[in-house]
Each structure stands twice: as structure tokens, then as C-alpha cells.
């Protein structure tokens, strides 16, 4: 059976660390970084990238449009 694998790209500079993506992610892929971006926000990042299924939930709820989502079958 083919497995769905996803991957996200987060524009760190535009991320405000609101965490809305984190709670919308069904697989626990995303977390807020301990480091901050240029504006001082703890930005979102794929802490567990292997868990991503490319569902795009994070991108759909991102108020700042900073997430790009890719998906493939392997």
C-alpha cells in the first residue's frame, strides 16, 4: 500500500509564532522553535518532519500565509 508523505516549508521571517498551525496539525509535525526570528517570535518549524502527511491543515489556518505544503505517495 502506498504511503502518503508530506513536507512543509515555513517562511520564518513572516511567521509570528501564533501556534494556530501547531494545534491544527493532526500528526504533531509542527512545534514552535526555541529560537526566535528577526521579529522576536518563536517561529513554527517541522519538529517531526517524518510525521507530516501533507494534509495542509497548517497552511489553511495560518493567518500569515507562511506555510507551503508538498505531498507525495511513496
Amino acid at each position: 500500500m502506498a504511503k502518503i508523505r508530506g513536507s512543509i516549508v515555513i517562511n520564518v521571517d513572516k511567521c509570528k509564532g501564533c501556534e494556530v498551525c501547531v494545534v491544527s496539525c493532526p500528526t504533531g509535525t509542527i512545534a514552535l522553535a526555541k529560537e526566535v526570528n528577526g521579529k522576536g517570535y518563536n517561529y513554527a518549524y517541522p519538529a517531526n518532519p517524518e510525521l507530516c502527511i501533507g494534509c495542509a491543515n497548517c497552511a489553511m489556518v495560518c493567518p500569515d500565509g507562511v506555510i507551503t505544503v508538498y505531498k507525495t505517495k511513496i
Binding site: 513536507s7 517561529y43 517524518e50 507525495t72
Partner: peptide
């Protein structure tokens, strides 16, 4: 800062 990415091979 640079973008942060998940698994690079999938980003096509």
C-alpha cells in the same frame, strides 16, 4: 532568516 523545511526530497 532562511525558510525551515521538512523532508527536502518531497519538496518538488
Amino acid at each position: 532568516m532562511k525558510d525551515v523545511t521538512g523532508i527536502k526530497e518531497i519538496i518538488k
